[in-house]
Write a protein that binds this DNA or RNA. Structure first.
Lengths: 210, 210
DNA sequence: CCGCTTCCGATAGTTAGACTATCCACTCGG
DNA sequence: CCGAGTGGATAGTCTAACTATCGGAAGCGG
């Protein structure tokens, strides 16, 4: 990684300044390196912008004990930015559908969460392109999201100290997404082959027919 | 949407040229509009670059009956671009782990699929940042990816004509990802609240205690 | 302690991607 | 017939993310 880039990150506030030992020397420690790796992960793996990464590390420094706040910052840095018209009846209907989902599942989510609007955005834009199937499959997506989230939150809480938990909130958001996404691709391949009736998977003992 | 932008997309080959009626007039039909919406969805919702969108629509035009090929193009346009060193023993071990997962699940995936490497990339980079939990949770991710993929492939195959199926491969890849991602965020909120032992969800009849 | 290298911080320049603006010849609608 | 609008071509703008250079002050080997 080129030095000028690191200097740039320092300027942009993505990395904390080193401890100055003289007018033109400064010490950088292990946590500087670690921070740098975190930033690169956010940018390379999470596709976050430099400005977004700055917000995330700032949030990591601030509300040191509030995982929910941090989670929001991390996710909104990662989420792609698209805003359909939110005044249309279609969008209102989509939002209502999401609220219904939340209620029927008993999800502990504040009804004013902006994340609800994000789901409605996706449903609406998809609907306007004729992907009505999104709505039909909404429950399946919610099932998977719920089971993944349960595992992930459990994993975060299993970390011993709060600082390490905070970091895993950020890293888990990014890497969890990337990992799921890549596995989904593999699973698509498998399911396409299976449902299209290509050759069956190798059996325990392929010699015995049927 | 400004006209100059549409002209730009035409130049870049994201939209097919209209049927020329005169030296300086051309007709555009419904499928042009639809194509434009598809491109915008790829860019806005999927976060795909203009060049990536061109590749996807080109793939949509070519191999008209090969969903697997198209799926690969669509996913690789969406996937963020990060390449850790693939020669390290860590990466080799990660890849072996992924292959084991594929075998033990009987997934019908070609062992040379580049998507396998993507999973290994994520595991390796995560591991180098100390997110060992990714490996531990790999099976949970695979479970969810499998069940989502089964639903999605089924949905695509339910479409009546091949052209419409091809389109849903692309749109489903993009919107499915966005929808799952947004729902995961909501589910994180819920699970954090639940596992941290915040107030319980409202019961059917909250009056009756216990 | 001399000189070469490296480093800090600051300023300025570069590159790629995604638009956006202008021009010109033409043509359609009133 | 005339003014608004269109298609195609060319050139310009704007932002994000780097990258290069500069001046001065350490550090370090001999």
């Amino acid at each position: 990684m080129p030095i000028p880039t690191i200097k740039y990150y320092l300027r942009e506030g993505l990395l904390p300044p080193g401890a100055a030992t003289a007018a033109n020397q400064a010490d950088y420690g292990d946590e500087h390196l670690r921070r740098l790796l975190l930033v690169r992960a956010l940018i390379d793996v999470g596709g976050v912008s430099v400005a977004g990464a700055r917000d995330v590390v700032a949030a990591l420094g601030a509300h040191a004990g509030d995982p929910l706040e941090l989670l929001g910052t991390a996710q909104s840095a990662i989420a792609p930015r698209h805003r359909p018209d939110r005044e249309t009846p279609d969008w209102q209907a989509a939002r209502k559908r999401v609220l219904a989902l939340i209620v029927e599942r008993g999800w502990l989510v504040h009804p004013d969460s902006p994340e609800i609007d994000l789901v409605a955005d996706t449903l609406t834009t998809g609907g306007s392109l004729g992907v009505e199937e999104l709505l039909a499959n909404l429950d399946s997506y919610a099932d998977s999201a719920a089971s993944i989230a349960a595992v992930e939150v459990g994993t975060v809480l299993a970390r011993p100290d709060p600082a390490s938990q905070m970091e895993l909130v950020v890293l888990g958001t990014v890497f969890g997404e990337a990992l799921f996404s890549a596995l989904r691709l593999l699973a698509h391949q498998h399911e396409s082959a299976r449902q299209l009736g290509v050759i069956e998977p190798p059996q325990e003992n392929p010699r015995i027919p049927q």
